[in-house]
């Protein structure tokens, strides 16, 4: 059921990407760096990137890199906002990643394919590693203005960047 949902959502997203230009939605390019950590054992971290309203209501999950649902709860902030329903993350779930630089592109739409309205939001980033640490940060951004925001590095993620391309 979970897999079918994922596939279904993936098809929808793919179709949406083919036929729609983002005439009415801002886009985000998130450059996220997971650092090399000299620790043994090293488990790849679980990562969640999501948008909230300024009042901290979940808008859409942008990326979720995970393995087993059993440990989703350890992404504590993401779990409390988006964990209740698979529909909040099925379309954006991927496998955990090894250390490196990653670019996450967001098309300005929520997981139902609706353009997220212009305005101010909170971009949340949470990284948690088994037998390791957990880091969480959130930054304000305005989807109606072009801009680039630097997310200060922590232990579990290095300095990262968010580029906003307003419509």
């Amino acid at each position: 059921m979970l897999k079918l949902n994922t596939l279904f959502s993936a098809v929808i997203l793919f179709t949406a990407a083919l036929f729609q230009h983002n005439a009415d939605a801002a886009e985000l390019e998130i450059e996220l760096t997971l650092p090399e950590l000299d620790v043994q054992p090293y488990h790849r971290p679980y990562v969640a990137v999501w948008l909230e309203t300024p009042k901290r209501k979940h808008v859409t999950t942008v990326a979720l890199w995970v393995q087993e649902a059993e440990w989703f709860k350890d992404l504590r902030q993401w779990w409390r906002k988006a964990g209740k329903s698979n529909a909040n993350f099925d379309g954006v779930t991927g496998a955990t990643k090894r250390p490196g630089n990653y670019t996450i592109n967001w098309d300005g739409k929520d997981l139902e394919g609706n353009a997220v309205t212009q305005g101010k939001y909170l971009l949340n980033l949470e990284v948690v590693r088994e037998e390791g640490g957990r880091d969480y940060t959130r930054v304000e951004l305005d989807l109606s203005k072009d801009g680039k925001i630097t997310i200060e590095g922590t232990k579990e993620f290095s300095e990262s960047f968010v580029t906003i391309k307003a419509k």
């Binding site: 059993e70 440990w71 989703f72 709860k73």
Partner: peptide, 11 residues
């Protein structure tokens, strides 16, 4: 004292 207060997963 509960061992957990928040749990996730299918089982």
């Amino acid at each position: 004292v509960p061992s957990h207060t928040s749990l996730s997963g299918d089982k």
